[in-house]
Every structure is written in structure tokens, then in C-alpha cells.
Design a protein around this nucleic acid. Structure first.
Lengths: 137, 137
DNA sequence: ACGAGGTGTGTTATGTTATAACAAATTTAT
DNA sequence: ATAAATTTGTTATAACATAACACACCTCGT
């Protein structure tokens, strides 16, 4: 029942469409929208938004990509795949669009601490910093 | 040139549509989508999305409301209007949808600190914690 | 009073992001 | 072999957001 199509370990076990999208995303210089990705994989047989969104959804579950909520875009996870922090922290340059992933464990623990003071039990937090990266400022 | 329609101080100087939307939002129990708000002010003469989005945009500039990026919804700012922290921190209950606004100054300073280590100059950061509030967990 | 410039409004149309629903194909389990 | 589960392809539509333009209104300088 858990056996799958791929001859690979669980972590990198991707469907064909997931592989296509991940490949495309990893070659992009900046975060991509779902429709950007659709355009870039059209010549590989993917024709409909649903196909892209399914792949994105699968890749997110596998912690291989992140979604940037403030711009409706997606990018590859930059951290080792075995880390699944309780917070995703992205520093996004408003000038060049480069993204740096900060230490989600440390920041997540800190935020959890703060939230607990209000009796809030946090499960998954997202931090998006907007500003200028080292190169651009 | 700075003189305006309203007889009120700068901070609370709102247009008619901004007042309608803010009023509607302040009576809502939970964060509302733009189209939720449109429905709730239809009987007050507002008919088109653009009118709502313009009002929301104005209210955001005046720091009277926040947008929750992870759910495309809006809510009233809970903090005193004179505080304009560099980070907006919202703890959102996945069960009851209640939102608690955490200390954006303290958290923002902390995050700025972390980001600076990567040479990143942050201007505006958004933090969204998902989990369970005190009542629900 | 007049008209120029600014701001707010109403309206139509359209752009962008995302999901529902279902049938066909493929893979896996028995 | 065949039943069960998963992945895929496809069409249609939902949900979120903005562009563009005309008009009303106010205020400021003349």
C-alpha cells in the first residue's frame, strides 16, 4: 500500500508531474507563480492549472518547496530535507526577488514562546520578511 | 492641499467607503474576505469589488486593519493606532478563527536581528502563527 | 464666479489564482 | 488476473484582485 512507482527512498519519491515542477522550480532564479510554472512545463505535456497545483501541493507536503503567501509564489526549500521546522522564515528582497531561508527552528521556538504567553498553542508558523538583501542595499 | 472632506483629525480621517468597511469589519467575529465584506455592505450602496478593495487598501495604509496572507482575509488592528511596528504578528486559531495580535515591536526587532546576520535589511515583516487558541486547545 | 487640479466614487470589464468534479490511465496489492 | 488505490488529464468554475475610465465633488488660485 505504501509501495510506489519510484525506485527511491521515501523522501525523494515523487510523481512524474512533481518531478517536472520541482525541476522547473529549481532552475528558476526567483520564486515562480503557479501559472509561470505552467508556462514553463507546457512543452513537457502539462496543460492545466490543476496539474500544477496538484504537484505543488504534493511537493509542499514533502517539504521540498515553500509557498510565499505575500506574493502567491513558490520556491524550492533551501534547507536540508531532514529539517522540518515549526516555522518557515523567508527573507525576500524587494529589489532582486532573491530569497534567503532563515533558521526556522530557532525563530519558531522563539515565536512559540511568545505565543504561549497568550495561551496560544502554535503548530506551524510562517514568517516573511520584506526588505533588501545584502547585495541590493 | 492637505485639507480634506472630513472634520476630524488626521488619524481617523476616513472616506465614506472606508468607514463603511471598517464598521463592517469591526462587527465581524472573525477575519473576513473582501467578498464577504462586499456582501455585508451591499445594502449600503457598495456594489463592486473595486470599491471594497480601495477601502481596504486605504485602511491598510492607515494601519487600521491587517491582511492575513495565508487566508486572503482582513481584520481590524487590535493595537493602539499610534504603534506602527515593523512586524505584524498574528496568532490565528484554526478552530475558532479568533486572532490575537502579538507584540510586533519586540518580535520585529528580534527578527530584524536574525536577518541582519545574513546581511538582509528588513523593512516590513509579517508573522502568521497557526494553531489553537487558549479556549480551543 | 470660474476653472484647474486633486481625491473619491461608481461601473464595466478583465486579469490572476485556485479548486471541484469526473473519467481514463497507470500502478500496486491480492 | 483482477480489485484497489493512485496519478493523470480535462473541463468547468470559483475565489481573489486590479485596470481603466467617466463623473462628482471639493478646494484653491485667480
Amino acid at each position: 500500500m505504501l509501495r510506489m512507482t519510484e525506485h527511491a527512498n521515501e523522501k525523494t519519491m515523487l510523481t512524474k508531474n512533481e518531478r517536472l515542477i520541482l525541476e522547473s522550480l529549481s532552475q528558476a532564479e526567483t520564486p515562480q507563480s503557479a501559472y509561470d510554472l505552467l508556462d514553463s512545463v507546457r512543452d513537457q505535456g502539462i496543460r492545466a492549472p490543476a496539474q500544477v497545483y496538484r504537484a505543488l501541493s504534493g511537493l509542499m507536503s514533502k517539504h521540498l518547496i515553500h509557498r510565499i503567501d505575500s506574493s502567491n509564489t513558490y520556491l524550492c526549500c533551501q534547507k536540508p530535507s531532514h529539517e522540518h521546522p515549526n516555522a518557515i522564515c523567508l527573507a525576500i528582497c524587494d529589489e532582486c526577488q532573491q530569497v534567503t531561508e532563515l533558521d526556522g527552528v530557532r525563530i519558531g521556538d522563539q515565536l512559540e514562546e511568545y505565543a504561549k504567553a497568550s495561551g496560544f498553542e502554535s503548530k506551524l508558523t510562517s514568517v516573511e520578511l520584506r526588505g533588501l538583501c545584502a547585495k541590493c542595499h
